[in-house]
Simulated assay, not measured.
Amino acid sequence: MESNGNGQAGGKDLIRIGSRDSELALKQTHMVREAMQRVHPHLNSEIVSMKTKGDKIQDVALSKIGSKSLFTKELELALEAQSVDVVVHSLKDLPTTLPDGMVIGAVLKREDPRDAVIMHPKYAECTLATLPKDSVIGTSSLRRSAQLKRKYPDLCFKSVRGNLNTRFRKLDDADDYAALVLAAAGVIRMGWKNRISQYLCDDLCMYAVGQGALAVECREGDSAILDILAKIADPDTTVEAVAERAFMRTLEGGCSAPVAVHTKVMEDSLTLKGGVWSLDGSEELVHTMTILTREPDTSSDSLRPPKKIAKTCITFCGIVPLPEQKDVMTRANQLGKSLAQTLLDKGADQILKAAKAQNTVNSPPSVSSTSNGNIEDKKALPVNTS
């Protein structure tokens, strides 16, 4: 158990922070706790760690497991049971529909969202373009493999599971893989930036919805916690997250189908690029849309914020808006929806349907949340504190 500080925050004697128990997850949770500590110097807190389903199943590709809450469900059960007050997630792990009564109280400043290539030491001077023909690239992501198969048809892509430490060992200690493709953010947070051989820009591989951002989930009615989290949220990253998650939700994509984005916040505009691919990368639909964020855009009624904001807890794909951001988040939410609908009108639904059907062949049974977001399994969870 870790605790620190000796005062209260928002009337709470102790804030319990839930986390997965991997080294990267704990590093990220410590980052969140330190951010909370900066805005509440006398914060008294402890980190409660646990394994999730995604951590326990290591011999099956993520896309084959079938659950939408692979790395979040156990944490959310602990949150619902009030054995923790907040939980820290990689935003890309969070489904776009949260369980009833739960919200994302803060999205922290995003680390580099791009994907990165980690080469086997013998290929340290190479890029994907210069690797020998038939080199094996390890990735657990259909999104990455679909895009990269399209760009590099002479390379082979093979699933690789495990935490970052395990994946690096699989790369370095054998000749099974010529390279890995991983989220740059995790590699950087682990202190291994020097191992990155190549960053993949959006013309090679667009990133996952929410990639590089940390989300803090809490109970909807916990006003004391929400007040604290509002102080650590990053405005630009939050707007990006809303647009990306609205895009994903409208497409009904996920880890079982290749969906990717690239987002850019400027001083007075937000640009969202989104795409869908077939599993083999042969089919691709990509489109880009931009909205103004500083001045009202009267070109489309659909992008105008509602005239009234309800007094209940308004969220955008689960994210609680900062008070000064409600209008821009409303517009970002609509941007994501509009971009997704444009792709659907061009046939994205057929590509996604085929990808999901192809991916579910011989998949193991799934354990997932109910359609309205309620958590099914109410059993008590064993937890560790760290």
Results as ranks from 00 to 15, higher is better:
residue 13 D to F: 15
residue 228 I to E: 00
residue 128 L to K: 01
residue 339 L to T: 06
residue 70 L to C: 07
residue 344 L to N: 01
residue 7 G to T: 12
residue 319 I to T: 02
residue 108 L to H: 03
residue 165 N to A: 15
residue 62 L to W: 14
residue 344 L to V: 08
residue 20 R to W: 06
residue 332 A to F: 06
residue 328 V to R: 10
residue 150 R to L: 14
residue 69 S to P: 06
residue 228 I to R: 00
residue 202 D to C: 08
residue 199 Y to I: 11
residue 250 T to C: 03
residue 230 A to H: 12
residue 360 T to Q: 10
residue 11 G to Q: 06
residue 175 D to F: 09
residue 299 S to L: 11
residue 120 H to F: 02
residue 290 T to R: 04
residue 203 D to E: 12
residue 170 K to T: 12
residue 62 L to S: 12
residue 292 L to H: 03
residue 331 R to W: 05
residue 287 H to Q: 10
residue 61 A to F: 12
residue 373 G to N: 12
residue 374 N to I: 13
residue 96 T to G: 01
residue 263 T to H: 06
residue 331 R to N: 01
residue 279 L to E: 02
residue 347 G to M: 13
residue 307 K to Q: 12
residue 265 V to K: 10
residue 373 G to F: 10
residue 277 W to Q: 03
residue 25 A to I: 14
residue 12 K to N: 04
residue 65 I to S: 05
residue 262 H to T: 08
residue 136 V to M: 01
residue 224 A to Q: 09
residue 82 Q to P: 05
residue 128 L to D: 01
residue 133 K to W: 02
residue 175 D to P: 00
residue 370 T to W: 10
residue 52 T to K: 02
residue 20 R to Y: 11
residue 108 L to Y: 01
residue 249 R to C: 13
residue 232 I to R: 01
residue 45 S to W: 14
residue 326 K to V: 15
residue 179 A to M: 01
residue 121 P to C: 04
residue 343 L to T: 04
residue 106 A to T: 01
residue 43 L to I: 15
residue 335 L to F: 07
residue 257 A to N: 08
residue 237 T to E: 00
residue 185 A to K: 04
